[in-house]
Amino acid sequence: MSWVTAADRGLAVCEVCGKVGKMAENARCSRCQVRLHSRKPHSIERAWALLLAAFVLYLPANLLPIMETRSLFGVQRDTILSGVVYLWGSGSWVLAIIVFIASIAVPLLKLLSLSLILIGVQRGAPEQSLQSARLYRLLELIGRWSMLDVYVVAILVALVQAQSLATVAPGPGVVAFAAVVVLSMLATMAFDPRLIWGAGSDQQPSERTCEPKPSTTS
């Protein structure tokens, strides 16, 4: 089966209202007057920049303490991993697994799979398109759940204060961790999933161009 895209026909879909319009230089949507782009401009470069920043911050996010508990027994510094270990040790296995998935597995898998998608698009691997598209949709869906640990720190910091025997303060790791979550969400948004299926009509034809579409269906 052959597919005809809007770009093949010199058309572009409006990102805001969804109306399909004629693509030209500086073309605007006939309904909402927003600039039309066949693909988001500089999508891959922006996605890589944000993604690399997220990779860099991933290390301090996991190595630095996200939380410091001061009590009569001294100072205890918790990283994300030690929080999971603590939950596991105290018998809350379900929560330990949830926090492990949300705070450790999801951010890492997100960074890695977005890199794979970007590399796939740049290398040109049309046979992977459907997988990449599904993966991308999954990333959009699950990325937000990594904020879980940031909220946990926020609640603990607010509740465990002077009145009690211990004081909890946020550690530097939680800032880095929040930045990783935000940056990787921004990277996902900067990427245009339509690039998975082919370049747009307003882009330089690169090594990776759409294959010529046969007019008859096979």
Binding site: L95, I98, M147, V152, I155, L156, L159, M189
Partner: peptide, 20 residues
Amino acid sequence: RPWAMVEVFILGVLVSLVKL
């Protein structure tokens, strides 16, 4: 839309309750 995270916050509250 992507930045509203009410459901994640609820889960965060539950996790902190277990920790406390």
